[in-house]
Design a protein around this nucleic acid. Sequence first.
DNA 1: AACGTTAGGTGGTCAGACCAGTTTGGTTTG
DNA 2: CAAACCAAACTGGTCTGACCACCTAACGTT
Lengths: 200, 200
Amino acid sequence: MTSKMYVEILQKIYRIIEEDGLSAGDKIPSERELSERLKAGRSSVREALRSLEFLGIIETRRGEGTYLKEFGEHQLIDLLGMFILQDKKAKADLVETKWLIEQLCLLLACERRTEAQLDELKGFIQQKTIDYETFFKWVLKAGHNYLLERIWRVLNDFFRLQHEDVSLPLTFYEYTWTALKERHIANVLALFTEYVTKRS
Amino acid sequence: MTSKMYVEILQKIYRIIEEDGLSAGDKIPSERELSERLKAGRSSVREALRSLEFLGIIETRRGEGTYLKEFGEHQLIDLLGMFILQDKKAKADLVETKWLIEQLCLLLACERRTEAQLDELKGFIQQKTIDYETFFKWVLKAGHNYLLERIWRVLNDFFRLQHEDVSLPLTFYEYTWTALKERHIANVLALFTEYVTKRS
DNA sequence: AACGTTAGGTGGTCAGACCAGTTTGGTTTG
DNA sequence: CAAACCAAACTGGTCTGACCACCTAACGTT
């Protein structure tokens, strides 16, 4: 053995996934079976699986088995967040970055929102069930950029660890809704600056 | 034990690194010692270490020990790419997101660049050693947002897996330099759109 | 048919053993 | 004395076998 076993095992596991035609949600062979098929000790197999689990590529359920996860649920960004945000410098930048990303998402949403989505948002506002997170989840969906959505979620999770919940007056959502309807980007951003950025 | 041992071990290892004041290049305690200090089996410790190695946070050298690595050489990307490259939606999002983040960074750099930094950039341009990555590393530094810098690096690593190197005419850097000097945000973004976004 | 019970499978953890490298310090040798 | 040598004591890498906790499904009883 010159190279690392667990790296080879990773490749072999990948091949098995391909050959068996497994896709997201499917169950992959048990640790003991992989151990046999790959002619490796169970501990080596586990070391490989642990890396995959850590990255969110697989999910292990005690007593049940090991399953492939959707790309969408990759914790890639979360993990990076975990290790990146340990940095004190990074924490200081968290708020700013979150705002910047949020403005980016507002921009996308303003371009891409559909009439149906606007109606949905109006519903939230009229029922007064709207809050900052609900609003931005809508924005992210309307923006149609999944990667950006993931990044925002991480930032938001970390933000909540350090800050109180953001509470904005209903008028912010109403005005912004109008600006989104008119596709008036400048107004959308101005409202964000007025209600969010400046208030801190 | 309700939660996963190796996650706890990861946290404890991180604490040890902090308490012992270890930084990049330093040696961390041996697996057997960690096993004792953390009151866990060696295999559990190894599973945790494997995840860290997979992410490129540590480096293990047989016979020598385990060392802390700089964050940045993550072969994480290569291995992960193997599993992700198929997802076309993610691929599309990646390009867009990278551009968006880059525009964000340009915006920050335009606001915050110092005269000294401008001189440095001019040097790169005059020596013709400038390329897309060099340019954006400068932009990120000038933007003074560490978190955004990290996010961009990750996106860029993924991007390079799937695309050719971006090569832009020298004029782009020259014009952008001027716009940055004048703090003319609109021009900076217009140049980016003209030379980068539209070319694809 | 509905309800327990049980046996087998699965991941989670551990201890101990051995292999394969590196480092270290003491011994031998020139 | 210095250089070369070598063995012991590390280090990570791997395997085995043994438990535990948990889930599922099949089996039986009511």
